[in-house]
Simulated scan of single mutants.
Amino acid sequence: MPTDRPEPAITAFMLVKTTPEWLAMTVADRVEAFTTQVVPVIEARTRGVRSRFYDTEFYSARVTDIWVWEADDHDAYQLLIDALRETPFWDRYFDVVDLLVGVENGYARNYGVDAVTTITT
């Protein structure tokens, strides 16, 4: 499926676990906290990053959410992490369990071969 977005240089899978402080908040308070305390810092400090959220608390006790970040380059990713660490997101509302950073189909680019993928319809 073609997109108008450039292929990200790196993709980061941020595995997090909610904290009791976050869970004690109402849903409205969580949305308010995220939109006023976290998003403005990210927008002010970074460029070239996009995110998606996945809920995993239904299937995992160790990780409650996965935040997938796509960054245009390593500098953009590093600025993102610095920005997040200056917000209550990091170690107050969520414990960062692990960061898995990779390059999609890096092997194909490195070896000059076509990426092996599956597409089903």
Rank of each mutant, 00 (worst) to 15 (best):
D4N: 10
P6F: 05
P6H: 05
E7V: 09
P8E: 02
A9H: 08
I10G: 01
T11Y: 08
A12K: 05
M14K: 03
K17R: 13
K17L: 07
K17G: 02
K17Y: 08
T18P: 09
T19F: 10
M25Y: 13
V27D: 13
A28F: 11
D29G: 07
R30N: 06
E32Q: 08
A33R: 06
F34H: 10
T36K: 14
V38Q: 05
V39N: 06
I42M: 08
R45F: 04
T46L: 03
T46C: 02
T46K: 01
G48A: 03
V49K: 09
R50Y: 15
R50M: 14
R50C: 11
S51I: 15
F53D: 08
F53C: 10
T56C: 09
V63I: 12
T64A: 06
D65I: 12
W67A: 12
W69M: 13
A76E: 10
L79F: 03
L80H: 03
I81L: 15
A83G: 05
A83L: 02
E86V: 07
P88Q: 03
F94K: 02
V97A: 03
D98I: 04
D98S: 14
L99G: 12
G102W: 03
V103C: 06
V103A: 09
V103H: 10
E104P: 02
N105K: 03
G106Q: 00
G106V: 05
A108K: 02
A108H: 00
G112Y: 10
V113I: 11
I119M: 11
I119G: 11
T120P: 00
T121V: 14
T121W: 15
